[in-house]
Design a protein around this nucleic acid. Structure first.
Length: 432
DNA sequence: TCTGGGGTCCTAGGACCC
DNA sequence: TCTGGGGTCCTAGGACCC
């Protein structure tokens, strides 16, 4: 059996932790650049505020109902996420069973094969209560025989919190049937917009229960090949999506941002790309990796003076290196000519990014037959830089090409303090 | 007039997730 | 005026190999 533990309205719950006066009030958290609404408390949901709604469209509604609005504060959420995950690992004896998979910042799967069926409900209650007691974050727990079914259970547990207490265990066929019958295909984990529409319009399949009874061959043809087959099996309670090894490294690392305001000039664009390359390299070194490919992209949105229209166009350039590297300076040197070659005078740029691919472990750095012995990658320098930036302040030490003014920096006008990760911003209970 | 079979690797692009 | 960021997996098709 699998459990999925999901933090309720995670970002909002984090904000509320330090603003207890907001505990029954509507709260929303915005995406980077204060663009869209990406987390909503229950009270905000019931006001009809949609997930992903652009802020400017919801301003009226937010004001009318006195909704508390926060910019996203990833230092805070990341730290609280760690505490929740640590608690889950502790409660499930992860050191012994190696059974916790952190799936996202606010979700984790736990493999429960070592527990008897009749112990599942109690275990779920314990998870919910102890996590709340130790971290202050409310969670929902769904348990079933496959990951897809556990997601179904989790979702339903939140639908009617009073009745379920945010816990649902699908441990017999009747419960599974009832759950699948009340689940729309579009709410299944793995069925997105496209497939949901196709299923409904072309095949008249509306519920998860209907989908469960479709033949494998049909799924192979019409639902993305092996992915579709897996979906049918999972719906039938047969686990096909394995637990991921927590030691697995990322295969791609990206750092991308919308600009706070549009950029028209090349120097600013280069500054941004250099900054993103530096950030990406930092992430790369954190997993002891080195990259062989770098992809730089910019996003344009019409030309200066043209009337506003949201019609983003991506342009990118790729470069494959003869040997992998994790050196910030080297990556910046490669990235800058790429962005120069992309730049067109008079174009309005709204976003840019750097993606590192072809990631290999950095102890297996492949030498290059045609260049002199590798100069140790400036590794000592990189390490010193990372240490300073980690312990003091992001960007305490940086490359000049990343710029000093940074006019393109994103907007974050309503960010709360980094209560748990910055000494200067620690929560004050009593002054003096 | 006619032109094999079997395989690998890579990239682009689509679909999905939170 | 104004619409996030960071990932994964899969497939098709081209280039190339013997």
């Amino acid at each position: 059996m699998f459990a999925i533990i999901d933090c309720n309205s995670f970002y909002c719950s984090c904000e509320r932790l330090f603003r207890p006066n907001l505990s029954n009030k509507p709260v929303v958290v915005l995406s980077n650049n204060d663009g869209c609404i990406i987390s909503r408390s229950d009270e905000a949901k019931s006001l009809g505020i949609d997930m992903g709604a652009p802020l400017f469209e919801s301003r009226q509604l937010l004001k009318k109902h006195d909704v508390a609005v926060f910019s996203s504060n990833y230092h805070l959420y990341g730290d609280l996420s760690m505490r929740v995950m640590d608690t889950l690992r502790f409660l499930s004896d992860d050191a012994t069973y190696r059974c916790v998979e952190v799936y996202s910042v606010d979700e984790a799967f736990i493999n429960l094969d070592h527990l008897p069926l009749n112990a599942l409900e109690d275990f779920a209650v314990r998870l919910r209560d102890v996590v709340f007691q130790w971290t202050g974050i409310p969670v929902s727990v769904g348990i079933a025989s496959s990951k897809v079914l556990s997601k179904v259970a989790n979702r339903l547990s939140k639908k009617n919190k009073k009745k379920t207490g945010c816990i649902m265990v699908l441990d017999d066929a009747d419960k599974v049937q009832a759950a699948l019958e009340m689940t729309d295909v579009s709410d299944l984990w793995g069925i997105g917009r496209r497939y949901a529409r196709k299923l409904k319009e072309e095949y008249g399949i509306n519920t998860a229960w209907q989908l469960k009874h479709m033949p494998m061959e049909w799924a192979r043809k019409n639902l993305g090949g092996v992915v579709g087959v897996r979906m049918i099996r999972e719906l039938n309670g047969e686990p096909c999506i394995r637990m991921k090894d927590p030691l697995e490294k990322k295969k791609m690392i990206a750092t991308t941002r919308m600009f706070g305001k549009p950029v028209f000039d090349l120097p600013s664009l280069k500054e941004a790309v250099a900054t993103f390359a530096a950030r990406a390299a930092e992430k790369l070194r954190r997993q002891y990796g080195a990259a062989t490919g770098i992809d730089v992209f910019v996003v344009t949105n019409g030309i200066e003076g043209a009337s506003y229209e949201y019609n983003p166009q991506h342009h990118h350039r790729y470069f494959t290196m003869t040997r992998s590297t994790s050196d910030t300076g080297e990556l910046i040197r490669i990235a800058l000519p790429l962005v120069e070659s992309l730049y067109r005078n008079g174009t309005k740029y709204v976003k840019a990014g750097v993606m590192l691919t072809g990631i290999v472990p950095d102890d297996a750095l492949q030498g290059d037959l045609f260049s002199v012995a590798v100069k140790n990658q400036n590794r000592a320098l990189m390490q010193a830089m990372d240490n300073i930036n980690f312990s003091m302040r992001d960007d305490m030490v940086k490359y000049v090409s990343s710029g000093l003014t940074r006019n393109w920096k994103m907007r974050q006008e309503m960010r709360s303090k980094r209560f748990t990760t910055r000494w200067l911003e620690v929560y004050v209970v009593r002054a003096g």
